[in-house]
Amino acid sequence: MGVIRAANAAYAVATCREFRQAEVKNVLFVLLDQAKWEDGCAGPILRAGADDVQPAPIHADEFVARLKALARRGTYNDHLFIKMPGCVFDAETGHAESGTRRAHLTGTEAKLLATLALDPAKVRTKADLMDHMYGDEDGGPEIKIIDVLVCKLRRKLIEMNGGLDVIRTVWGRGYQFEPAGFVPDYRDGRSRRSR
């Protein structure tokens, strides 16, 4: 994600256009100096490739909320394919496919997989996953739903990947996507730990 602080609209337009012509796919958030903000100035900046334009200064809470909203929406901006050892997930169709086998992921399972897969090096906490999946909705599901969704998603993907797991549990921290997969190490019938 890129944040561009612009002194004027012309600079913001030129900068956004340069980024997009260079095929930079990051989310671009433009903060335009309040003194240069006028009706209609955001239109050309958005058409040049910005994802959001706001006058600066901006309240810190609103800034963080806008960045998180853009990050949530940005997950499916492009047609997303997630390659795993035994299958490929197509975000547009919602299917994980391997030859003649096909598994359908629910919308929440697909969103969970995409959130984990877009940054495989990062361990995502349950709170982080809740924020990416549900935002700050009041009355939303309990945080325990993340464990349930991971379990259901993991079961489908292990079957599609020939027994390899692609979601690693990092004990005490959260979950991480393992694009090459790993073989789960079962300690007993109910508990599972990965190597």
Rank of each mutant, 00 (worst) to 15 (best):
G74V: 01
D61A: 15
R73L: 07
D39C: 01
E38R: 11
E62S: 14
R73Y: 06
F63V: 02
H79Q: 14
A69N: 08
D39M: 14
R47H: 01
A65W: 05
D51S: 04
I58R: 08
G74D: 11
H59D: 15
A50L: 06
R73K: 07
P55E: 11
L70I: 05
T75R: 11
G49C: 00
G49H: 01
I45Q: 06
D51G: 02
L70Q: 15
R73S: 12
G49S: 02
Q54F: 06
P57A: 11
L67I: 05
R72T: 02
A56Y: 13
H79Y: 11
T75I: 08
D52M: 10
A48P: 01
R47C: 02
V53R: 06
V53A: 10
F63R: 15
F63P: 02
A42I: 05
R66D: 08
I45T: 07
G40L: 09
A42C: 06
A42G: 05
L46S: 00
R66E: 10
A65Q: 11
R72N: 04
Y76N: 07
H59K: 12
G74W: 06
V64W: 04
G40C: 02
R72F: 03
T75V: 07
I45K: 03
T75L: 08
R72Q: 09
H79A: 10
D39F: 11
P44M: 07
P44T: 01
D51L: 02
P55I: 05
N77A: 06
G43L: 13
I58Q: 11
A56G: 02
A42E: 08
E62Y: 13
A60R: 09
Y76C: 03
P55L: 09
R73A: 11
G49E: 00
N77R: 10
L67Y: 03
D39E: 14
T75C: 09
A50K: 06
